[in-house]
Computed example of a mutant assay.
Amino acid sequence: MTAATLVSTDNVAPRERAPVWREWVWKHFGGLEADLYGDTEFDGHMASAHAGDVILTRLEANRHRVVRTAGMVRASDAGYLKIVAPMHGRAGVEQMGRQAWVSPGGWTIYDTTGCYAVENPERVEHLIVMLPKALIVERGLQLESLMARHVGGASGISRVALTTMRSTYQELPNMSAAAAQGAGELIAQLVRLSLIELAGQSTALTQREALKDRIRAYVATNLRDPALSIEQIALALNCSKRHLHNAFAGEDDTLASYILRLRLQACIREIQQTGPQSRAITGIALSWGFNNLSHFSRVFREHTGQSPSAFRQAAAGPLQH
């Protein structure tokens, strides 16, 4: 029988849950920063086990976001490819200028030796699988172009891989160490085959992904510009607006909502800074391309459930009397 590691906030005082969860995430995933979108209430549970060198974790938690910066990457010892396969809720993985949103029935993969961010905008239950990169590296397979891509899960080898990951996690308590080792090796083989198949997708889809990468790179560079628009992007990339919209077809975000979401996320990160170096909310909004403050306040409330000032007050913690 393989040993499992279990952690839960159920026995932690409510006010201590957020910092305790951040500490658990940091330790379990080898240096990873978590924030809770400014929420003051939180609960989460993790159960993890090994299938040989492959680590499988079932995570259930309120909405949260995790980030790995360049400094955290340098502090990490081991290189893994990490898979997120939602069972409930959805996740958005961002790496190398790309972002892939996955829902139950799909999965995506990213590289822990690079910077990345994972959005969980609602309560989630995920299966997270960590595979040593050495198990996946295939001669001629360029992993960089496959990270933060929607691998699949609905059909073909990616569906076989997803089913195997789920069933392995469920049956690990009943496996011997030798059987668990074999199951881990099978998962690695199926993931490798899924990535090889993804790398061989049609030229049209490859071109669309390439255009999407160019769009995201341009948006990232010009996010603070209030004049950033679909028209401006089309002119800069020398393509039609129709091509820009087509590049985002099938995504949860339209191009316009993608830009808005990135701006809001940037504002949220700055508004959460409540120390003496914190900036005024108006200045933050203007610096990230919002030139209409009433519009900013409205979309901020829609995204977080709070006004910007209430959000900052919550991030600062309860008032001391």
Results as ranks from 00 to 15, higher is better:
193 L>E: 10
194 S>P: 03
194 S>V: 09
194 S>F: 07
194 S>K: 11
195 L>T: 00
195 L>C: 00
195 L>I: 05
196 I>E: 03
197 E>P: 09
197 E>Y: 07
198 L>S: 08
198 L>A: 14
199 A>D: 14
200 G>L: 02
200 G>W: 01
200 G>R: 05
201 Q>C: 11
201 Q>I: 13
203 T>W: 09
204 A>S: 08
204 A>E: 09
204 A>Q: 08
204 A>N: 06
205 L>W: 11
205 L>H: 13
205 L>G: 05
205 L>S: 14
206 T>R: 15
207 Q>C: 10
207 Q>P: 03
208 R>H: 07
208 R>A: 09
210 A>P: 01
211 L>C: 06
212 K>I: 02
212 K>P: 04
212 K>Y: 11
213 D>E: 14
213 D>A: 12
214 R>V: 00
215 I>E: 01
215 I>K: 03
216 R>D: 04
216 R>S: 08
217 A>F: 07
218 Y>N: 01
218 Y>K: 00
219 V>E: 06
219 V>T: 09
220 A>W: 06
221 T>E: 13
221 T>A: 12
221 T>Y: 06
221 T>V: 06
221 T>N: 07
222 N>H: 15
223 L>K: 03
223 L>V: 04
223 L>T: 00
224 R>M: 08
225 D>Q: 05
225 D>I: 03
226 P>V: 00
227 A>Q: 12
227 A>H: 06
227 A>T: 09
228 L>Y: 11
228 L>N: 03
229 S>L: 01
229 S>R: 01
230 I>F: 01
230 I>K: 15
231 E>P: 10
231 E>V: 11
232 Q>E: 11
232 Q>D: 11
232 Q>H: 13
233 I>Q: 08
233 I>S: 06
234 A>D: 02
234 A>I: 03
234 A>N: 06
234 A>M: 10
234 A>C: 07
236 A>W: 02
238 N>S: 08
238 N>E: 13
239 C>I: 09
239 C>W: 01
241 K>E: 15
241 K>V: 14
243 H>K: 14
243 H>I: 02
243 H>P: 01
244 L>A: 10
244 L>D: 05
244 L>S: 04
244 L>T: 06
245 H>N: 15
245 H>F: 13
246 N>P: 02
249 A>G: 08
249 A>C: 08
250 G>P: 03
250 G>Y: 00
252 D>H: 07
252 D>T: 06
252 D>P: 01
253 D>E: 13
253 D>F: 12
253 D>M: 00
254 T>K: 14
254 T>H: 13
255 L>Q: 05
255 L>P: 02
255 L>R: 08
256 A>C: 09
257 S>L: 05
258 Y>P: 01
259 I>D: 01
259 I>Y: 00
260 L>W: 09
260 L>P: 07
260 L>V: 14
260 L>S: 13
261 R>L: 02
261 R>H: 04
261 R>P: 00
262 L>T: 02
262 L>R: 12
263 R>P: 09
264 L>K: 01
264 L>E: 05
264 L>R: 02
264 L>S: 10
265 Q>I: 05
266 A>I: 03
266 A>E: 10
267 C>M: 04
270 E>A: 15
270 E>L: 15
270 E>G: 14
271 I>M: 06
271 I>K: 08
271 I>R: 10
271 I>G: 14
271 I>P: 15
272 Q>Y: 12
273 Q>V: 15
273 Q>Y: 13
274 T>F: 05
274 T>R: 15
275 G>V: 15
